[in-house]
């Protein structure tokens, strides 16, 4: 009987997180177009509904009703499962993120490593999407995108290693709690190099500008997405925005203090302590997503060889230096 209640509670939690994330992702597409439009001195979508609020639903209906084209000599089974291989690990990693104190679907001991493992698994979808489309542009786009993702995974992992060193644990709950006892309640001011390296690597992991060469319209048609139409394209898009959400969540949990606010703020304004933690978590995540849009509207994109040079020759040495620095400080000073 207890087991049944536990199962039902977990199913409700999963449904809530899933639903809220899908809603966030749908409106992330809307807000991206609005924000970038405003930054470019134009209105974004404003036709569908008041201020264009219903635009995501219009996009969803459009993608559902488009014709589903499969290229002539494509490998049909692999073509079919590639979007699923990209989407499934990305959505699974939502289950280990603590949105607030105690609100986690799966409280495992190796929280962040699980998210890294899911990021490694979703690389397969990209390679297979490019290869199974049986088209040169798609194939090269897929290989380039996969090479970019696996190169920046290393810098991401090493900069996260410095956070693990400071917190003494890999569990996301413990990392947030360890940060709360730290001055400023955030690791970002002191692990600044690691924070910046992770930020840049997060842009590259999700194939966003300035590292979006594989899917930019002026290059390689649309990269590995070229031969996908209709709902399959929508699945790839969905996984990109969910990955953005997850990277922002990791950044807020590991570097910005998660659902807590700094102690000196609650000392000055004590009523802020009674605001539920999830509000602060979402504010920080929204800030990072706004950063994604801001960078997209502002910065030109890197060529592929420049991209790989940055990943291997700049970010990895910086993150290693950061790790050494943190190890030194932790051993001899703290």
């Amino acid at each position: 009987m207890d087991f049944l209640i536990e199962v039902i509670i977990n199913v409700i939690k999963v449904a809530v997180v899933f639903g809220v994330t899908l809603l966030h992702v749908a409106y992330a597409t809307y807000f991206e177009r609005k924000v970038i439009g405003r930054m470019q001195c134009r209105l974004g979508p404003s036709e569908v509904g008041p201020y264009g609020i219903l635009q995501p639903f219009a996009d969803m209906f459009k993608s559902l009703f488009k014709e589903d084209i499969i290229p002539a000599r494509a490998d049909k089974v692999v073509f079919f499962i590639a979007p699923m291989i990209v989407l499934a690990p990305t959505m699974t990693s939502l289950s280990v993120i603590p949105f607030s104190e105690g609100f986690i679907i799966a409280d495992i001991n190796v929280g962040i490593l699980f998210i890294l493992a899911c990021a490694s698994l979703s690389v397969y979808g990209i390679i297979l999407a490019g290869w199974s489309s049986n088209s040169k542009y798609a194939f090269f786009g897929g290989i380039r995108s996969a090479a970019q993702v696996i190169s920046y995974e290393i810098a991401m992992g090493i900069s996260l290693a410095s956070v693990f060193l400071m917190a003494g644990s890999v569990r996301l709950d413990d990392i947030v709690k360890a940060q709360y006892d730290y001055p400023f309640s955030m690791y970002a001011p002191h692990l600044f190099i690691g924070f910046v390296v992770f930020l840049i690597a997060a842009f590259a992991e999700t194939n966003r500008t300035p590292f979006d060469l594989p899917e930019a319209e002026t290059e390689l048609v649309a990269g590995y997405l070229t031969e996908y139409s209709g709902f399959r394209y929508a699945l790839f898009f969905l996984s990109e925005y969910v990955a953005m959400f997850i990277m922002s969540s990791i950044m807020t949990l590991c570097f910005l203090g998660g659902w807590t606010i700094p102690k000196f703020v609650t000392d000055i304004l004590p009523f802020l302590g009674s605001v539920p933690g999830i509000f602060w978590f979402l504010m920080k995540v929204y800030f990072f997503i706004f950063l994604y849009y801001w960078v997209r509207a502002t910065v030109p994109r890197y060529r592929f060889d420049q991209l790989m040079k940055i990943g291997w020759k700049v970010l990895i040495p910086l993150s290693l230096f950061n790790l050494l620095l943190v190890a030194f400080v932790k051993r001899f000073i703290l």
């Binding site: 699980f114 890294l116 490694s120 390679i127």
Partner: peptide
């Protein structure tokens, strides 16, 4: 051994097999 489960995915499935795929495809 939950650490080994995650390492299996990150290293074996996520790096070594991707190397295989790259060699086969390129």
């Amino acid at each position: 051994a939950e650490f080994f489960a995650v390492i299996q995915i990150i290293v074996y499935a996520g790096a070594i097999l991707v190397m295989f795929l790259f060699v086969v495809m390129l």
